[in-house]
Amino acid sequence: MHPSRPLLLSVAAASFGLIGVALYLQHGLDMLPCPLCVIQRYLFLAIGIAALAGALLAKPRAGAGVALLAALGGLYTAGKHLYVLANPGLSCGIDPVETFLNKIPTATYLPFLFRADGLCEDATAPWFGLSIPQWSFLWFAVLALVLAWVLIRRRA
């Protein structure tokens, strides 16, 4: 077994688990996702799929590389979400991004997961002391660090 396999499987499990948390927040606590939230869901899903593929297909560096790119994209998106929240004059919600996201086939066929119906400003309610975008940024950072470790460490 490749030494990076357990790390990649852990990254995949964390990513899919975070999608589960997002679904709980949406359907259990009625927190509708905004366009930036939905983009972050796609990126967590991409991290999970790439990490899982890297672990199962014996291509850990390739899977970790693709997953790291998705994690960096997630850091950017979550950072933009935090920027929108820090600057009340900015907004996201009913805009061209939402319209585009809601017309993607995944949003059409899986609206419970990928439909953007909320406003970015609604994500400020603290959950265990941090807002949802802060948690997302933190998790993207942790996953990016683990994936970078998989890429830079020498094979044992």
Rank of each mutant, 00 (worst) to 15 (best):
P3E: 07
S4F: 13
R5V: 06
R5S: 05
R5E: 08
F16M: 05
F16W: 06
G17S: 09
L18H: 01
I19P: 10
A22T: 09
Y24I: 14
L25D: 09
L29D: 09
L29P: 02
D30H: 13
P35A: 07
C37E: 09
C37Q: 00
Q40I: 01
L43I: 03
F44H: 00
L45I: 13
L45F: 14
L45D: 04
I49Q: 04
A51W: 00
A53M: 12
G54M: 03
L57G: 13
L57K: 12
A58I: 10
P60E: 06
R61N: 11
G63F: 05
G65H: 11
A70V: 09
A70H: 01
L75H: 00
K80N: 10
L82D: 00
V84S: 02
V84M: 10
N87Q: 15
G89E: 14
G89C: 10
S91I: 04
S91Y: 14
I94K: 13
V97D: 02
T99E: 08
F100C: 02
I104V: 13
A107F: 02
T108L: 15
Y109K: 11
Y109E: 14
L110D: 08
F112C: 11
L113V: 14
F114N: 09
G118I: 05
A123F: 08
T124I: 12
G129D: 06
G129C: 00
L130W: 15
S131I: 02
S136E: 00
F137G: 01
L138D: 01
L138Q: 09
V142M: 14
V142N: 12
L143V: 07
A144I: 03
V146P: 01
V146K: 01
